[in-house]
Design a protein around this nucleic acid. Structure first.
Lengths: 193, 193
DNA sequence: CGTCTATTTGAATGTACTCAAAAGCGGTGG
DNA sequence: CCACCGCTTTTGAGTACATTCAAATAGACG
């Protein structure tokens, strides 16, 4: 049941059997039905989440009431409102299940105990933060320098598994365009080949 | 000479006199003339930089040869190619002095010694990474949900000191628009009031 | 099967872009 | 100190890409 998260952690740090047992013992499971919310705007996020099954989207609502997706998460991804979690202030992010999903939750206080007992987890979570940072940087760069069509093609190549599971409307929001525009881009692309 | 950086560090961690002395002893000073480069695309960044005087821009060059500013840094700001520094791989970022500048350099190996000798610096640099992360997230959100005019007004309000020092061309690049468009937006705004 | 939502298509609009040229400004050398 | 040169900023005209609003079609779910 915890094999996926252990494999995920082992990408960056090696754990002894005892450490693995301790780590998995502090995780709490959470199940969400499609359309249920994991995090709501205004919440102070007390958890980091690992997805073992399903698919979720993180989005914020701009002052005009328009939703903008910032991230998708499927199995073997970490998610959460990093900003709110790090600063412990009310967040602007919502997280909604796009499919029935199963998550493992690591509570902030429990995480701090973990850092004391198994300090190498500091390194692991710094890695996660770094990766999130890098992907955000790439996203900024991509939004500044590429057309919507280029961003769409890139998304499709980079996240094929999400491309097939996530509704186009949601992908459009992630790319920063309207669903109508994405539909037209897709049409263009089929004509081209 | 090191009072600015010590004040900067003290925002997040408290140092003893000895720790302060050790910390400042491991910093190296670097002077750049206007238009000189601190970091070039392809470099593996071995340093984190603190600006004590001057002004710099970080930018990348897209496949079409167009420059895109990702960050400005003035006195009391940290800068560098975070991605390259963290992963120790060749970076895509250039950093150029927009004015004659003075920097303090913290070399990666030396930083690691620092983490061992004064572990609270781990926390300090995690804070820096968090802040960088948060500002990137805000930037993505801003690019997705705001018009160029809104982004310009926000930039002006958020970074008044940069607004007066940085050439408009560079601000346009940061905002993701052409210099011509920024000029027109500014004209619009003067007409409005 | 019917309802609700997602996707596609059409037409008109708008925002920012490109290319071109003029005006403004700052730094440098005579 | 001033004139000139180069770069930045402004302005103009035409264009491209994505948007809005509206409506039709397709799909998913109970």
């Amino acid at each position: 049941m915890h094999s996926l998260i252990l494999k995920n952690v082992s990408r960056f740090i090696q754990l002894t059997k005892e450490e693995e047992a301790y780590f998995t013992s502090i995780l709490r499971e959470k199940r969400l039905k499609k359309k249920q919310y994991l995090v709501k705007e205004g919440d102070i996020t007390r958890n980091t989440y690992f997805v073992t099954e399903g698919c979720l989207r993180s989005f914020f609502i701009d002052p005009k009431g328009v939703e903008h997706n910032t991230q998708f998460a499927i199995e073997d991804w970490w998610t959460g409102d990093m900003h709110s979690f790090l600063t412990q202030t009310p967040g602007k992010i919502n997280i909604e299940a796009l499919e029935d999903s199963v998550l493992l939750c690591l509570e902030k206080n429990v995480q701090e105990d973990l850092f004391v007992k198994v300090p190498k987890f500091e390194r692991f979570f710094r890695h996660l933060l770094q990766n999130a940072f890098i992907s955000f940087q790439e996203r900024i760069v991509s939004n500044l320098s590429e057309t919507a069509e280029e961003r769409y093609i890139k998304f499709r190549n980079k996240y094929p598994s999400m491309y097939v599971r996530v509704p186009q409307k949601q992908i459009a929001s992630f790319l920063g365009i309207t669903p109508e525009s994405l539909s037209r881009i897709r049409k263009q692309l089929t004509v081209k080949r």
